[in-house]
Design a protein around this nucleic acid. Sequence first.
DNA 1: TAGCTGGCTTTTGTTTTCCTAAGTCAGCCG
DNA 2: CGGCTGACTTAGGAAAACAAAAGCCAGCTA
Lengths: 156, 156
Amino acid sequence: MTDFLARRDSWSTANCSIAGALDVVGNRTTLLLLREASFGTRRFDDFARRVGVSEPVAAARLKQLVADGLLDRRPYREPGQRTRDEYVLTAKGRDLLPVLAALREWGDTYAVEEPSVRLAHHDCGAAVHVALRCAAGHDVPADQVDLLPGPGLLPS
Amino acid sequence: MTDFLARRDSWSTANCSIAGALDVVGNRTTLLLLREASFGTRRFDDFARRVGVSEPVAAARLKQLVADGLLDRRPYREPGQRTRDEYVLTAKGRDLLPVLAALREWGDTYAVEEPSVRLAHHDCGAAVHVALRCAAGHDVPADQVDLLPGPGLLPS
DNA sequence: TAGCTGGCTTTTGTTTTCCTAAGTCAGCCG
DNA sequence: CGGCTGACTTAGGAAAACAAAAGCCAGCTA
């Protein structure tokens, strides 16, 4: 029961949630586009320029993100302007913000000297960081996390 | 001060922590190798087989992970066996676990029907999930996160 | 109605990533 | 000392991702 880890050949790749998530957001450009979307970027060429990617790549990735339901593409019109399309995060896309926050936190520590953005709690102004918590409300240090078989493994 | 987001062309790509983190772990194979390392996998061919990648790719990625300081490669010897090399997470690599946990949580919700692994708090057994918290100890919902300029932007 | 601009798409060619298959090397085992 | 196994490396080639440049189309603006 507890040593299901020992024979994880059978399930390590099969229907793994991490692999499934990476099938959607497993490349650099996609995550940077989502970073921009979380900053409020909406227009096509802003995405391409700020992510630092060519237009064909931006078009392909944005299209894929819309197809995957992370971004919503919808027309809008500023007064006196023609109709344009904008891309905004869906709930499914917003739920990836913890991933971006965790990457940012790691990058702040190990990849850059001076972070250009910091996250603050709107109510109290204190710095926001990513934490592991259990359903009972405890803070969970990384070494107190147990790996247990999930419902996808019970039939075996 | 608050509309620094409006002219983020200047800093969106430059020394962004997320981009820096993705330079290290920005591809699928690397993150899956770290997932395996977090499961306790140590041997070369176990990594390759469980991640589902060919040996040359596993060798290249593991070598890069060692060079980046996320994995430590060290010899070990089981009794009656020859010396082998094993790969184990460093502190720098362990600090990526929140990223993996966040990806897993998103994948549990959106990418698979039945997760094969669940995380539990060792002390109380309750499910572990990723949360945003501020330094003052509050839970921070995603819509209460403010983006503020960090130290890397002050000189401008 | 003739530009002009935003928002893409198409084309072309290069670079990166990956797989398969084969080869290497060290050392225990008979 | 000759084979076998684990842990890789090398070679060759296919597939994917990417950039640069050009083209297309809709609809304001003049």
